[in-house]
Amino acid sequence: MKIIEPHVHMIARTVQDYERMARMHTVAICEPAFWAGYDRTSPQAFHDYFTHISEFEPTRAAQYLIQHYCWVCINPKEAEDVGFSREVISFIPEFLKKPTVLGLGEIGLHLSTKNEMTIFAEQVELALKHDQLIWIHTPHLNDKLRGTKLMLDYLTGHGGVDPDRVMFDHMEEHTLPLVLEHGFWAAMTVYPVTKNSPQRVIDAIETYGPDRLVVDASGDWGPSDPATLHDTIFEMRMRGHSDKAVERIFYNNPCQFLRQSGKFRLEMM
């Protein structure tokens, strides 16, 4: 069985994680652009960051037979300064031309402020202008429901957004049905303490079915582990789901969504 990890921040991980993922049959990973754990001091720092994830990480991953893809954007946690954000947005189009850049992401909201919403909307427009996929970060913890609803309202009222080309990430029990019922894709993150456990992810798959649903471990610089994706595969198999059903969630579904970019090179199984 082959596995696609749709969300991992490899800039914050060591080669041991590449090696572990490769040994657990991960064949492709995607790295959305996000906060580094500190606020960057200049727009140029984002240029360096985008260069790193679009040029250097693919070479590191290739040593472990893993295809590395990325998304670029100004992330919501650093989007409060509108002027600063627009400087970053100004050079995003040059990165959208690169062969492993899949679209705009992870755009979204953090505290759901007016400024964050302005930059979210401007990046949605940029994605539409360049015919790009969109990967959305939804807020953490108790801010998640409000922020998700704000973005859903914006996108469903927009009129020009195809929900089949948009992924809402970090879904949980209270936001997942909202996103799915509007025709968007949904990703569930397996994360210690602050997001989903493997058990809750499989509960959701059993409750809502496999359509437009993917799973990621969102490994980054904080408490997280790429292997939680594989823990979730084990949980699904332990509950008696067929290999084909498991493969759909952990390979075919992300493959189907990501292939819409025109750049994702793996084939459906």
């Binding site: 913890l141 029990e173 303490v193 602050t194 456990s197 058990q199 809750r200 509960d203």
Partner: peptide, 14 residues
Amino acid sequence: YLHMRSALIETAAT
């Protein structure tokens, strides 16, 4: 708070 929140949600999910 985060650990208590997590334990509560996990128990409810079970």
